[in-house]
Amino acid sequence: VYRAIALLKAEGYVESQQGKGVFVSDRRKLIAGAMRIKGITSPGETIHHKLSARVQAPGWVAADLGEGECVNRVRTVNKGDVVLQASQSWVHVDVAEVVPEVDLPEACNPTWQAVYEERSGHPVTAASKTVDARITTAADREALGLDADFAVLVMRSVYVTGDKVIGVGEGIYAPGHPLAIS
């Protein structure tokens, strides 16, 4: 818990007040919104696409996306040989009709959300975003190339067009790297 709070403080997500406790910082710092849809990399970073596969939506994803088949896209964002972020998207199968690239084992340029918006003419927004911290899981350690447990930042987003959820994303950020998600 102490390591998680220290990570959140270092990234500016929480602030401590002597004698009062730890409080969430201004919520505007936690929202990436349109910036996330336009691209997930900064200068000098590259996307390493790992997987695109049709899967059944996991329970927590199905709560937003709906039950049934979706496209799971797995990738990392690297700066040189260093993995900065491991992320996954679960994309509604209807999106594949407009953006068939979501089924291919390669990155969409700039993101599947931006390509969908451009081709369909329907705006895509990040309807909700949550940021949390946790201790790494075995899958996190493997994806991030870590050999020990660390506190990591987890950002989850729900993407909508109109009133329909078309995707859910989760990014796990490697410890010790500055983040620009505001």
Results as ranks from 00 to 15, higher is better:
Ser25Cys: 00
Gln85Ala: 02
Glu97Val: 03
Gly66Glu: 07
Glu118Lys: 15
Lys20Trp: 07
Gly121Gln: 09
Glu117Leu: 05
Ser87Met: 10
Ser25Asn: 12
Ser89Val: 05
Gly44Arg: 13
Ala62Tyr: 14
Gly80Glu: 00
Val74Asp: 15
Arg28Asp: 13
Cys70Glu: 06
Arg73Glu: 05
Ala63Asn: 09
Ala53Pro: 00
His122Asp: 07
Thr111Lys: 02
Glu101Lys: 07
Val93Asp: 04
Glu45Asp: 01
Gly39His: 07
Ala107Arg: 13
Gly39Tyr: 09
Phe23His: 09
Asn109Met: 04
Pro123Cys: 07
Glu106Asp: 10
Pro110Gly: 07
Thr41Ala: 04
Thr111Ala: 03
Ile40Phe: 06
Gly80Lys: 01
Leu84Gln: 11
Gly21Lys: 07
Ser42Arg: 14
Ala32Val: 08
Thr111Pro: 01
Val82Met: 01
Gln85Trp: 01
Val55Tyr: 04
Val115Gly: 08
Pro110Arg: 03
Ser87Lys: 06
Glu106Phe: 07
Glu106Val: 12
Thr125Leu: 07
Val77Leu: 05
Gly44Met: 13
Gly33Ala: 15
Ser87His: 01
Val83Lys: 04
Arg28Ile: 08
His48Lys: 08
Gly121Val: 13
Lys38Val: 05
Gln88Ser: 12
Leu51Met: 15
Ser120Phe: 12
Gly68His: 14
Asp81Thr: 12
Arg36Tyr: 11
His122Val: 03
Lys38Glu: 15
Val124Trp: 10
Thr41Cys: 06
Tyr116Leu: 08
Gly59Leu: 10
Leu65Arg: 10
Val115Asp: 07
Val115Cys: 03
Arg36Glu: 12
Met35Gly: 15
Ala114Tyr: 05
Ala32Lys: 10
Ala107Asp: 14
Glu117Thr: 09
Asp94Glu: 15
Arg27Gln: 13
Phe23Tyr: 15
Thr46Asn: 11
Gln56Thr: 08
